[in-house]
Nucleic acid binder design. Structure first.
Lengths: 136, 136
DNA sequence: CAAGATTGATAGATCAATCTTA
DNA sequence: TAAGATTGATCTATCAATCTTG
């Protein structure tokens, strides 16, 4: 079910806005910050992505003018990723449509107690994943 | 949560048996049949994969000797995919371990009524997906 | 050396075009 | 023509190695 659902959400975003779910997630995280700006390692942590995946993905998004880079003056190893005007416009268009699709496919007509169970279930699995995480 | 979970299940299979979740799904479908043999279009339907994805994937699995091809005498356009001895041995080793991982990460300590809700939720979303499927 | 991040190679997924036979 | 399936090009994900600065 989840792979079907994710596939559909992906296609919807792609067809309507030229975004993948991955693009969407990156843009949403950036939008959640006051200046639309995050360090790369913060993004990596929030999204739970590998550094390398994120780095490649950001390079592609930068080519498409969805995000840009800014130097970090306090730590010169690091970089800031910032939303561009295009990036902000795109996510502001895409988000309501995406939310509506999720509502139609998942939450519409779903009993309230099912939503509560889903919430608790997610917390349960996430905590199991964390408990058993490989410690580097 | 689902992407984290899928990531972990993937890694576990990969590290322990050199299989991806996709490989696993293909092998399981084949094991479910009496002769360990299916037409390509049946696999595509069962897995809900595009023809092309499946075709590329089977080519790679064939190179790794997990599956093999047989000609279809009644419809010479088509092909059968069959489990090899290696493929059968691999899935027979991997399946119990995979099931155990899923049990640990999801079902262990989960209230029975939550499982029932999960089941009903999945059916709900799948039926929504089908209702709103693009008709070709 | 470790942290922050990028790079290049390879495996996997997606799209459009193609090939063969019903 | 359509069904069954493959191919080549392109995009994305993963792995190992590397680069730079703290």
């Amino acid at each position: 079910m989840t792979s079907q659902l994710q596939g559909r959400l992906n296609r919807q975003l792609q067809d309507a806005f030229g975004l993948s779910l991955a693009d969407y997630d990156v843009l949403v995280r950036l939008t959640d910050t006051p200046q639309g700006r995050l360090r790369v390692y913060e993004l990596a942590h929030d999204l739970q992505w590998e550094q390398s995946r994120l780095s490649h993905h950001l390079a592609r998004m930068q080519r498409r003018r969805l995000v840009a880079r800014e130097e970090c003056t306090t730590d010169r190893r690091g970089a800031f990723i910032v939303l561009t005007r295009t990036g902000r416009r795109t996510i502001e268009e895409a988000a309501p449509a995406h939310v509506e699709t999720v509502r139609e496919l998942v939450f519409d007509g779903l009993p309230v107690d099912h939503v509560a169970v889903l919430d608790s279930l997610s917390a349960h699995v996430l905590s199991r994943l964390e408990e058993s995480a490989p410690t580097p």
